[in-house]
Design a protein around this nucleic acid. Structure first.
Length: 271
DNA sequence: AGTGCGGCCTGTCCGC
DNA sequence: TGCGGACAGGCCGCAC
């Protein structure tokens, strides 16, 4: 599923094809995403020039003078840039056709994604207004999460995956960041020292930065039919490695369920 | 306010 | 070989 690094790589991949281009038409083949695609979106977006392609958390923002399209890829969504006449396949739900003859095509088999529209400041949109800081900015640091964590009794893994605390730490990168910080995923968030949170903020930044860099080096050609976003081949040290030896100490990596999510950790390194 | 969890979806994999 | 069922997962929104 697209996590923050994939979304950021997608943003960088599609941006050159969108920026400064006018929307010729919008084709909605299936409006049934997480929320229905607003019926008026095609008419509203048509004729608009795309002035910016931004990302906030895992939302992509296509800014125009009239308003902003808000896209989310959910778990299975992907965006590609194709010649507009390329036949749509199964699960290709939306086309944003540009004056260049290319189209931005959204595919989302599981339809957990979203395409919304707002005429106001998108950062004030209900879905975005209460989000925590971006993980790769100075607003996210150990001090902040240490403060927010006081009194929290739930597992630290749930805590750092909470979008009000920090955005963009999905299941995979939460597992990896906790491993690198040597923190046990089910430890109560409120019972972790300040210095350990400083370390966690640092490892979270590092793992996300590495993943974005990997996305850059393996950058798919977004204009190609097979330019299909997938997992980045960064080296995941614990995620998906249950039963294998820990790369640090050789103990067997364990898998458990925390907050209804698969969690991987080294029982020896992580406390 | 914090926490837990149901629900939305479909492709993939497993066991029978 | 076919088929049912479990599983995966972001994240909203509700219940406690």
């Amino acid at each position: 599923m697209p996590e923050l690094p994939e979304v950021e790589t997608t943003r960088r991949g599609i941006e050159p094809y969108l920026l400064g281009h006018r929307v010729e038409r919008v084709v909605v083949r299936d409006p049934r995403l997480r929320w229905p695609i607003p019926a008026e979106l095609p008419d509203t977006l048509r004729g608009q020039c795309i002035e910016a392609v931004e990302r906030r958390a895992k939302y992509l923002l296509l800014r125009t003078r009239a308003g902003t399209a808000i896209l989310h890829l959910g778990m299975s969504g992907s965006l590609r840039v194709l010649p507009a006449q390329t036949p749509a396949e199964r699960h290709d739900h939306v086309d944003i056709v540009l004056d260049s003859g290319l189209t931005l095509r959204l595919r989302d088999p599981r339809r957990f994604g979203a395409v919304l529209w707002t005429g106001e400041d998108p950062l004030r949109h209900p879905l975005l207004a209460k989000l925590g800081p971006e993980p790769l900015t100075d607003a996210f640091d150990g001090e902040r999460i240490y403060r927010l964590s006081r009194g929290r009794r739930g597992p630290v893994k749930n805590f750092i995956m909470d979008n009000h605390v920090v955005v963009g730490l999905g299941n995979i990168y939460a597992n990896e960041a906790l491993f690198r910080a040597r923190i046990h995923p089910s430890r109560a968030a409120g019972r972790i020292a300040r210095e350990r949170y400083a370390k966690l903020a640092e490892t979270a930044k590092t793992v996300l930065t590495e993943a974005i860099a990997a996305g850059g080096t393996t950058l798919r050609d977004f204009t190609r039919e097979d330019g299909n976003p997938g997992y980045f081949r960064i080296e995941l040290k614990v995620y998906g490695h249950a039963g294998e030896p820990c790369p640090e100490c050789g103990a067997t990596i364990r898998q458990t369920v925390i907050g209804q999510r698969s969690s991987y950790y080294c029982p020896h390194c992580q406390r």
